[in-house]
Every structure is written in C-alpha cells, then in structure tokens.
C-alpha cells in the first residue's frame, strides 16, 4: 500500500514538473508566437549587431523605396545679416536699426581680436566664449554683412550652417542624419514634411554652449518626497 502511494506521489510530482517545463518553454516562445517578431525578418537584438539586421531587412525596405519619400526636410534659415539697434526712433516710432557694414565699412578691421572686452559702442556687454577663434575667423572683414569660411570664401548669414560645419564636422554629420538638433513634423517623409532647426536656433554663435534651464514640470506622485537634492 505504502509503495503504491509512493508511486502515485512520484508520478504526480513528475507531472507537475513537466507542466512547469512546458510553461517555461511557452513563455520563451510566446514572444515569437505573438507575431510581432516572427511575422517579419526584424532584428531581434539590434544593438548587438545592427549591420546584420540591415542585411536581413533591406529586402523589406526596398519595396517602400526611396522614391516614395515625397516630402522634404526643411531647415529653418536665419533671417539674414543681423541689424543692430541704435536706440533711435524714426518718424513712425519704429526703432532704427543699422547694418553691420554701416559702421564697419569705415573702420579698419582688427584681425587679432579674440575677446569681447576690447569691444565698445554697439558691442559693449557682449559675451564671447567660443574656443580660441577670433572675430574675423567667421565675420567677413571685406563685407561685414556676410560671413567668411576659413579659406576666405564669402558665405551669407543665411548659410551659417556651412560655416559652423567647417569645425563641427561630427555634429554636422549627426545633424544630416537627424540625430542632432531635434525635429518637428514627420519622421516618415512619405507621409509628410519635416522641419529642422539650424545651428543658431539653439546655439548663440558667440556663446555656443547650450544655456542652463529651470525645470518647469515635475512628477507629483503621492508620498514621493519633493526636492531631495541629495538622497
């Protein structure tokens, strides 16, 4: 009697174990069975080997095709050469501004100047913190209403990105691939257009470091102590 009970118990235990094993197996395979992964040749583990996943997925993508990207990416452009305020008002009460060239065409350029301290008049109080470049590394001494590249070629204020890209190649490359500067609109250009910022939308060219900010939105969870600066 006792022997047969032992057998019964063992069989039941084995059955339980088998059940658990099946459950583990099914859990492992369930994600695949879900259809999300199995239905298409998608990379299961993209960070490990992205290049391999590209090979696997290119066939799928080719049917969508580049030609279908009918909408364009618009990069915002700066308004043009800056105008400088004069503290004067015209007859209509509008502020009078002048072009850079208004003053600079009559003055001799200081090729050495690298700081804002020595600047006066319109430039007083300006902050400058942009590596070791001098003013005329970027500003065009021949025409102060435009900029110049390192090789001396003139470039318009509206094409400022060409200028920045000379030194900031990695950022430029990231930008071109949509990984710098953020975007608005559509990620999928077959469905709608995309807008992107230019360099000086976010970076002040004289103090290009991104400004500090004050957070305005915080989680207000119940029982979560606020402002534990050091916890």
């Amino acid at each position: 009697m006792a022997g047969s009970r032992g057998v019964i118990i063992s069989v039941m235990l084995l059955a339980m174990l088998a059940g658990a094993a099946v459950a583990v197996q099914l859990r492992a395979s369930s994600v695949v069975a879900d259809g999300a992964v199995a239905s298409e040749p998608t990379p299961n583990d993209p960070p490990a080997d992205p290049s391999a996943s590209q090979v696997a997925t290119s066939a799928v993508r080719s049917s969508r095709g580049e030609a279908q990207k009918t909408f364009s990416v618009t990069i915002r452009k700066p308004a043009g050469p800056p105008r400088v305020a004069t503290n004067l008002k015209d007859l209509h009460g509008e502020a009078v501004t002048v072009a850079c060239s208004t003053c600079h065409s009559t003055r001799s350029p200081n090729l050495q100047n690298k700081t804002s301290q020595s600047l006066d008049e319109f430039h007083s109080g300006m902050k400058f913190s942009h590596g070791t470049v001098s003013c005329l590394s970027c500003h065009n001494a021949a025409d102060y209403d435009s900029l110049q590249l390192a090789d001396g070629h003139r470039v318009e204020f509206t094409d400022v990105m060409t200028l920045c890209g000379q030194c900031h190649g990695p950022q430029m490359k990231d930008f071109e691939h949509g990984v710098h500067g953020g975007l608005n609109g559509y990620w999928d250009l077959s469905r709608g257009p995309q807008q992107k910022n230019n360099c000086v939308d976010c970076h002040n060219p004289h103090t290009p470091q991104f400004p500090k900010m004050q957070p305005t939105f915080k989680p207000k969870d119940r029982f979560l102590e606020q402002s534990r600066s050091e916890h």
């Binding site: 009970r5 019964i8 118990i9 039941m12 235990l13 339980m16």
Partner: peptide, 13 residues
C-alpha cells in the same frame, strides 16, 4: 483517497 493524494501535491503547488 485519490483526492487526498491530489490535495497533497496541490497544497505544495
């Protein structure tokens, strides 16, 4: 009795 044995396994489960 079979149910008693089942209940032993089941209690553990």
């Amino acid at each position: 009795v079979p149910f008693v044995f089942l209940s032993i396994i089941w209690a553990i489960s």
